[in-house]
Amino acid sequence: MRLVDIKKDWKKNKSVYFLAIPIVIYFLIWHYAPIVGLLLGFEEYSPRGGITGSEWIGVKNFIDFFKSYYFGRLIKNTLILSIFSIVINFPAPIILALLLNELENKIFKKVIQTISYIPHFISTVVICGIVIDFLGYDGAFTSILLNMGLIKERQDLLALKSAFRPIFVLSGTWQGIGYGSIIYLAALSSVDQELYEAAKIDGAGRWRQTLHITLPSILPTIIIMFILTMGNLLNVSMEKIILLYRPVTYDVADVISSFVYRRGLQEGAYGYSTAVGIFNSIVNMALMFTTNAISAKYSETSLF
């Protein structure tokens, strides 16, 4: 790139560059400045010193976290909720999409789809409010479980340690199964119909068509979605957690993000909780790249 070219470009496109200024400023302030702010994780933060004047303590915050009682608990809870969510909530929309795809009445299919997306549009606060109401001491779902003999006595299920994880994961299924299926339905609709005709002539039944044509056709979509999911393995969102957990269930419900929120914002430990956040991002990044690399090697589908 020669100086002459730059000058010519500037003269011609000056106004476009001016237009871009607010965008660049927005991203520098709200996206790049916080990245610089990660330095807080290596400091003993004091309100008076701020980010530039606080004492530099290297990786002490990280070591404190690794040694603390919370480290094991948070990793365990985050991983269990995350893996449990993936095992159930990752395949659920795929299965739904396959079943919807088998419906021959187009209007019926449309109606079921439209209904199944609705929970996605209800706010998290309302969802959690409904969950708390349904599973409370005299909640409707508690009554159903009682009548079916699945629980012995009436109790507030959200105060029950053993119930928290199923509640969290299954309410997530309810929220996401319909909306999650859209992307797979899109992939299914672009499968070449001639493949099915050819398979029929070869005498393949419906089940074998699904196994040998449908699934391989949508596999790339499934793999991409899976890589993205793996990149968020440790990002169990605190959105629902902090609405549903209580001090009695912290033992099974507290995850990294909710811990950062409590420690950092409610107790003001900026340095320490930033370090915890950094640890979280590094693990996520590593998981995503690993999954991507494995997938690139064995399936030739990859994100990068």
Binding site: V36, Y261, G264, L265, I278, S281
Partner: peptide, 8 residues
């Protein structure tokens, strides 16, 4: 940057 640096 995550929660705390953005807040900061």
């Amino acid at each position: 940057g995550g929660l705390i640096p953005t807040y900061y």
